[in-house]
Nucleic acid binder design. Structure first.
Lengths: 198, 198
DNA sequence: GCCAAAGGTGACGCCTCCGTCACCTTTGCA
DNA sequence: TGCAAAGGTGACGGAGGCGTCACCTTTGGC
């Protein structure tokens, strides 16, 4: 967006790439990655079949690009949330708030991730939807070291938080409008109690 | 098994059906339902293509049959676990133990469910992997009514338990041999603390 | 042992997908 | 305005999936 005013050539390129990504998000989210074909994506676009291959070698590359985008956004939000946390409660609440706000704002991406979580797990490494389970674990480790939280299995705890967050987030998104603060409050109370009692 | 000693005709039929289901479990677990074809399943069998259609109309029906099987087993185990629970802690621990033992014993089915959770959710109704979220919610409600647990949002709590259980179970299964009791202890402590503090 | 019913078999016609490539349109530069 | 490079287009050959059906083997009753 900052350097948008380039030549028409460049602009078309960016627009085509974006059109493919947008179409793929929808197609993957509601047919599932496995059942989706490159033609399905192209059809949801006004481009010709051959054009697709000027941008991506296959549908897997498109999925990868979509995930990179989502991960970038998610990481930025989580980093921001962490920066301002002073207490354990703020830390937990901030993390969940960032997570739930993301889900609420970008439903399509959430649906994409949720629908294809299994595929993503097997296709790429571990992360899948919790695009930051490992960072969370490291943060918990740091909290233990700082004496804020009793020692516990931080790997299991991080996974439990991600898993519970996913399900709680799903329920949240089912309601319209989604009650972000309610979800944050629930998840925070749950894990603050668990962490203190660890 | 009880009425197995029927004619050869019957036995072949049962064997063929079982062969298709077994093959499908493997194929769906590692290619994903969407990417799998009826031919993939048939190929993993020593039957001919046409035979498949004498047993199932399409691959979706096979998935449905696999899920019915799994749900039946899971429900039986959970019911048994509940029967013996006397305290809150026993109730929670019993539920998680039943769940984790199932995952540990039938890895293939677990992989099938985990890999295709998104597809299952959209293809059939809600349940997917937590083949008993609703029952769990009802049990929590009963515990609240009985005064064993403070009032709380039982729907969210049930989902959080299922979500956390799934992730904790995944970690458990990654290790060999899987530490069922460790997983049970972790999950139980987590949710007993949360429930008491609700 | 015979024969009709059950049911396994795999080739077939139809369809869609894949990735490519020769062709044509558009763009940017001079 | 002219022209070369960039890149969009869609038809094409090859592959493979789908569900069917005529045919053949097996089974079970008599």
């Amino acid at each position: 967006m900052s350097e948008a005013a380039t030549g028409r050539r460049e602009r078309t390129k960016a627009a085509n790439r974006a059109a493919i990504l947008d179409a793929a998000r929808v197609v993957f989210a509601d047919s599932g990655f496995g059942a989706a074909s490159v033609r399905d994506i192209v059809r949801a676009t006004d481009l010709a079949a051959g054009t697709f291959y000027n941008y991506f070698p296959d549908k897997e590359a498109v999925l990868r690009a979509l995930l990179d985008e989502a991960a970038l956004e998610a990481r930025a939000r989580l980093r921001a949330a962490r920066a301002s946390a002073r207490t354990l409660e703020e830390f937990v609440a901030g993390g969940f708030r960032a997570y739930f706000e993301f889900l609420a704002e970008d439903r399509l991406t959430f649906e994409l991730l949720r629908r294809n979580a299994g595929t993503i797990r097997t296709l790429f490494g571990q992360p899948a939807l919790g695009a930051g389970t490992e960072e969370l674990r490291a943060d918990l480790e740091a909290a233990v070291a700082a004496g804020v939280v009793p020692p516990h299995d931080t790997d299991l705890m991080a996974r439990a938080m991600v898993g519970a967050g996913l399900e709680v987030g799903s329920r949240m998104v089912e309601r319209d409008p989604p009650d972000v603060e309610g979800a944050v409050a629930f998840a925070t109370r749950l894990f603050v109690a668990a962490l203190n009692a660890a």
